[in-house]
Measured scan of single mutants.
Amino acid sequence: KEEVSSHTSPETGIWVTLGSEVFDVTEFVDLHPGGPSKLMLAAGGPLEPFWALYAVHNQSHVRELLAQYKIGEL
């Protein structure tokens, strides 16, 4: 988790977690339908608090999209 928390910018890579999985979403930030700034709120940390607020994320196609960016496990 400490390593994930240091990845919060395009220069270091933008990493997020979901459960025990780690994702590098650097290439996706500008494609995020809610805008880059919304995704950047989660940079370096867990997606769960944000996904709890926005139910649109609880769809299979969203998880499939995220899976493409998986880089490891906590």
Rank of each mutant, 00 (worst) to 15 (best):
K1P: 04
K1T: 08
K1N: 03
K1E: 07
E2D: 13
E2Y: 10
E2H: 11
E2C: 04
E2M: 14
E2Q: 14
E2V: 14
E3Q: 13
E3T: 14
E3I: 15
E3W: 12
E3C: 12
E3A: 12
E3D: 10
E3V: 14
E3Y: 11
V4Y: 05
V4F: 08
V4N: 07
V4A: 11
V4Q: 08
V4H: 04
V4M: 11
S5P: 09
S5Y: 14
S5Q: 10
S6E: 15
S6K: 15
S6Q: 15
S6Y: 15
H7V: 08
H7M: 10
H7N: 06
H7I: 06
T8Y: 15
T8M: 15
T8G: 11
T8W: 08
S9E: 14
S9P: 07
P10R: 13
P10G: 14
P10T: 12
P10K: 14
P10Q: 14
P10A: 12
P10M: 12
P10L: 12
P10Y: 11
P10C: 10
E11Q: 10
E11R: 12
E11T: 10
E11I: 10
E11W: 08
E11S: 13
T12V: 11
T12L: 09
T12R: 13
T12P: 09
T12N: 14
T12Q: 12
T12W: 03
T12F: 08
T12M: 13
G13W: 00
G13T: 05
G13N: 05
G13C: 05
G13F: 01
G13V: 15
G13Y: 02
G13H: 07
G13K: 04
G13L: 04
G13M: 03
G13S: 07
I14A: 01
I14D: 00
I14H: 05
I14S: 02
I14M: 10
I14Q: 01
W15P: 03
W15R: 03
W15C: 04
W15E: 02
W15D: 04
V16M: 13
V16C: 14
V16A: 09
V16G: 08
T17D: 00
T17A: 09
T17L: 11
T17N: 07
T17Q: 10
L18S: 13
L18D: 10
L18H: 15
L18I: 05
L18M: 13
L18G: 06
L18P: 00
L18N: 11
L18E: 11
L18F: 11
G19H: 07
G19D: 08
G19M: 09
G19V: 05
G19Y: 07
G19E: 10
G19I: 00
S20W: 10
S20F: 12
S20A: 12
S20L: 13
S20M: 14
S20V: 11
E21P: 01
E21D: 11
E21R: 09
E21Q: 13
E21S: 13
V22S: 04
V22Q: 06
V22L: 14
V22P: 03
V22T: 07
V22N: 05
F23V: 04
F23K: 02
F23E: 08
F23Y: 13
F23G: 00
D24A: 11
D24V: 02
D24P: 02
D24G: 00
D24N: 12
D24H: 08
D24W: 00
D24E: 04
V25T: 03
V25N: 08
V25L: 07
V25F: 03
V25C: 03
V25K: 01
V25Q: 00
V25Y: 00
V25M: 06
V25A: 03
T26F: 02
T26I: 02
T26N: 02
T26Y: 01
E27V: 06
E27M: 10
E27W: 05
F28Y: 12
F28I: 00
F28G: 05
V29Y: 01
V29L: 12
V29P: 02
V29I: 13
V29G: 01
V29N: 04
V29T: 10
D30G: 08
D30V: 09
D30L: 08
D30I: 05
D30Y: 09
L31Y: 08
L31Q: 14
L31N: 07
L31M: 10
L31C: 03
L31I: 13
L31P: 01
L31W: 06
L31F: 08
L31K: 14
H32Q: 00
H32I: 05
H32L: 02
H32R: 03
H32E: 06
H32K: 00
H32N: 00
H32T: 05
P33G: 04
P33N: 02
P33R: 06
P33S: 06
G34F: 01
G34R: 09
G34W: 04
G34S: 01
G34I: 00
G34D: 00
G35M: 04
G35A: 05
G35R: 01
G35N: 01
G35H: 00
G35L: 04
P36Q: 02
P36V: 07
P36R: 13
P36K: 14
P36H: 02
S37R: 12
S37Y: 08
S37Q: 12
S37W: 10
S37N: 12
S37G: 10
S37A: 13
K38H: 03
K38G: 03
K38N: 14
K38S: 07
K38D: 01
K38Q: 09
K38V: 04
L39E: 07
L39S: 01
L39T: 00
L39P: 06
L39N: 00
L39I: 15
M40K: 09
M40S: 05
M40I: 06
M40A: 04
M40N: 02
M40H: 07
M40R: 09
M40F: 04
M40D: 03
M40L: 14
L41V: 04
L41R: 09
L41Q: 14
A42N: 02
A42W: 03
A42V: 05
A43Y: 02
A43E: 04
A43T: 07
A43K: 08
A43P: 02
A43H: 02
A43Q: 00
A43L: 01
G44A: 03
G44R: 04
G44W: 10
G44L: 07
G44T: 00
G44I: 10
G44Q: 07
G44M: 01
G44K: 00
G45N: 08
G45E: 04
G45H: 10
G45V: 01
G45P: 03
G45D: 03
G45C: 11
L47H: 01
L47N: 00
L47Q: 01
L47A: 08
L47P: 00
L47V: 08
L47Y: 08
E48N: 02
E48W: 12
P49K: 10
P49A: 07
P49M: 05
P49C: 06
P49W: 04
F50V: 02
F50M: 10
F50G: 05
F50Y: 15
F50W: 15
W51L: 03
W51I: 00
W51H: 08
W51T: 01
W51E: 05
W51N: 00
A52T: 14
A52G: 13
A52D: 15
A52H: 12
L53H: 09
L53I: 14
L53F: 04
L53Q: 15
L53W: 04
L53P: 09
Y54K: 05
Y54E: 12
Y54F: 03
Y54M: 01
Y54C: 09
A55P: 15
A55N: 15
A55S: 15
A55Q: 15
V56M: 08
V56G: 03
V56C: 12
V56R: 05
V56E: 09
V56K: 09
H57A: 00
H57D: 03
H57L: 01
H57P: 01
N58Y: 13
N58S: 12
N58F: 11
Q59Y: 03
Q59L: 04
Q59K: 13
Q59F: 01
S60H: 11
S60V: 13
S60E: 13
S60C: 07
S60N: 10
S60Q: 12
S60I: 13
H61F: 08
H61I: 04
H61T: 06
H61N: 06
H61S: 10
H61Q: 04
V62E: 00
V62R: 05
V62Q: 04
V62M: 01
V62P: 02
V62Y: 02
V62C: 06
V62G: 01
V62L: 04
R63D: 08
R63T: 10
R63C: 05
R63N: 06
R63A: 08
R63V: 07
R63I: 06
E64T: 11
E64G: 10
E64P: 05
E64Q: 12
E64D: 14
E64L: 10
E64S: 11
L65N: 08
L65C: 12
L65V: 15
L65G: 02
L65E: 01
L65D: 09
L65R: 11
L66R: 01
L66V: 07
L66P: 01
L66F: 15
L66K: 01
L66E: 02
L66T: 01
L66A: 03
A67P: 03
A67E: 14
A67S: 12
A67I: 01
A67Q: 14
A67C: 09
Q68E: 11
Q68F: 07
Q68W: 04
Q68H: 09
Q68I: 05
Y69A: 03
Y69D: 00
Y69P: 03
Y69N: 08
K70R: 12
K70N: 07
K70L: 08
K70F: 06
I71P: 01
I71Y: 03
I71R: 09
I71A: 09
I71L: 11
I71C: 13
G72A: 14
G72T: 04
G72I: 06
G72Y: 05
G72F: 10
G72H: 09
E73C: 09
E73H: 11
E73M: 10
L74D: 06
L74T: 12
L74M: 15
L74P: 09
L74C: 13
L74H: 09
